[in-house]
Design a protein around this nucleic acid. Structure first.
Length: 384
DNA sequence: GTCCCGGTAC
DNA sequence: GTACCGGGAC
């Protein structure tokens, strides 16, 4: 399907923000994206799912649906919506409910603060707004549980206010279509995308435009495997034309920092110490380190002595903790390791027989490959 | 099993 | 910036 753009509908690329160099080129070639709104709405009318909250302009029901749909897929949220509407047909019914009741119906949906906030907000509206739902974005966003997205959704769907919804779908659709490389999990992104969405919006029908762009993102311009072959605007789409669909939207990857506590046993057995090669599917595979006891949190001397792994290792040998160090922080791309080195004197007896643990002279420590954090420790203690 | 997705409150 | 949650894709 070829998209025919009418010159009369063109507007200038409305953003000062510099996009990628490619976007600039794209801008020259495809200023035609102005039929975006028309095309999208046309697509929406032909492809929309029939959903109960689309049959109403009752702000209460729209609010209910929008809160339920936060962080939630339509298919999962739908039965909850029906249950709530049936049980509480209007706001005052809802406001009279108690929290247990509301939460019971919410059970399984997750993010339970949404339900608690809803009850709170319902009561607020009864008390401070004479039971009448606030009718504009500014008033809506004051309410608990209603942020920028939900305020825009209610304001446009129920009252046709000219405000753009910016949810995950909108980020995706616009970043792909316009070639916006601003990372969507940056604080600057919302402003930029809100501006973009507002520029593209059909101001005569904000409600339908907002519905359309989100439905489009949810069912066609999906995060993975978007259905570009059936897309009515692919010919004007930056990502499609430049084969950049997979890289948009841009998201800053924030590695999850797993926090771990390592207790390294620097044993001294008359000039010898012990090393163990790391074999498991974990960090530092193949490197050597002191016998390690990993704990879920930081531990003190008594806790170390009582630790089952420690007891298993030492068994009946007589030992003495001669020194310990405060935990050293070691940051990897995806983990934070707090490593504490315990210096322990073997007074009498031997460690548990363990083929993996090798006994080595402290003079020869330098011959073994060790993780950075161990290397630093050994250097600090003049051992390498 | 692991990874990815997603609005708001604080 | 991080906690809150469950589901779907792989």
């Amino acid at each position: 399907m070829v998209l025919v753009f009418r010159t009369a509908n063109l507007v200038k690329f409305p953003f000062k923000k510099t996009f990628s160099a490619e976007t600039k080129l794209f801008e020259n070639n495809f200023v035609q994206f102005m039929c975006f709104s028309t095309q999208l709405i046309q697509w929406y009318r032909q492809n929309k799912r029939n959903l109960p909250w689309r049959e109403t302009t009752d702000p209460y029901r729209i609010w209910l649906s929008e809160i339920i749909l936060q962080q939630t897929r339509v298919e999962q949220g739908l039965p909850y919506f029906l249950k709530y509407v049936q049980t509480y047909p209007n706001l005052s019914d809802f406001a009279k409910a108690n929290e247990d009741e509301i939460l019971k119906y919410w059970q399984g949906l997750g993010y339970y603060s949404r339900a608690r906030n809803m009850l709170n907000t319902a009561k607020q509206i009864i008390k401070f707004h004479n039971g009448k739902f606030p009718e504009n974005y500014a008033a809506l966003i004051q309410l608990k549980g209603i942020g920028p997205y939900t305020a825009a959704a209610i304001a446009s769907f129920a009252f046709n206010e000219k405000v753009a919804v910016v949810d995950g779908n909108v980020f995706r659709v616009l970043s792909r279509f316009l070639g916006i490389y601003e990372p969507i999990n940056n604080s600057a992104a919302r402003k930029l995308f809100t501006k973009a969405a507002l520029e593209l919006m059909n101001k005569k029908n904000p409600a339908e435009f907002n519905q359309a762009i989100m439905e489009f993102g949810a069912t066609l311009c999906k995060p993975a495997k978007p259905d570009c072959s059936n897309c009515p605007i692919s010919s004007a789409c930056f990502a499609f034309s430049k084969n950049k669909i997979a890289e948009l939207p841009v998201k800053i990857v924030k590695p999850i920092k797993r926090i771990r506590y390592f207790n390294y046993l620097h044993l001294n057995d008359s000039g010898n110490t012990f090393f163990k090669k790391r074999e498991s599917k974990d960090i530092w595979q193949g490197l050597y380190e002191f016998p390690l006891i990993e704990t879920p949190k930081t531990i003190n001397q008594d806790e170390l002595l009582e630790h089952p792994d420690f007891k298993k290792l030492v068994q009946k040998a007589k030992i003495k903790i001669t020194n310990w160090h405060s935990a050293k922080k070691h940051i990897l791309s995806h983990q934070i390791i707090y490593a504490r080195f315990w210096q322990i004197e073997m007074v009498k007896g031997n460690l548990k027989q363990d083929k993996a643990i090798i006994k080595i002279s402290e003079e020869r420590l330098a011959e073994y490959p060790v993780p950075r954090i161990l290397d630093i420790y050994l250097k600090n203690n003049n051992l390498v």
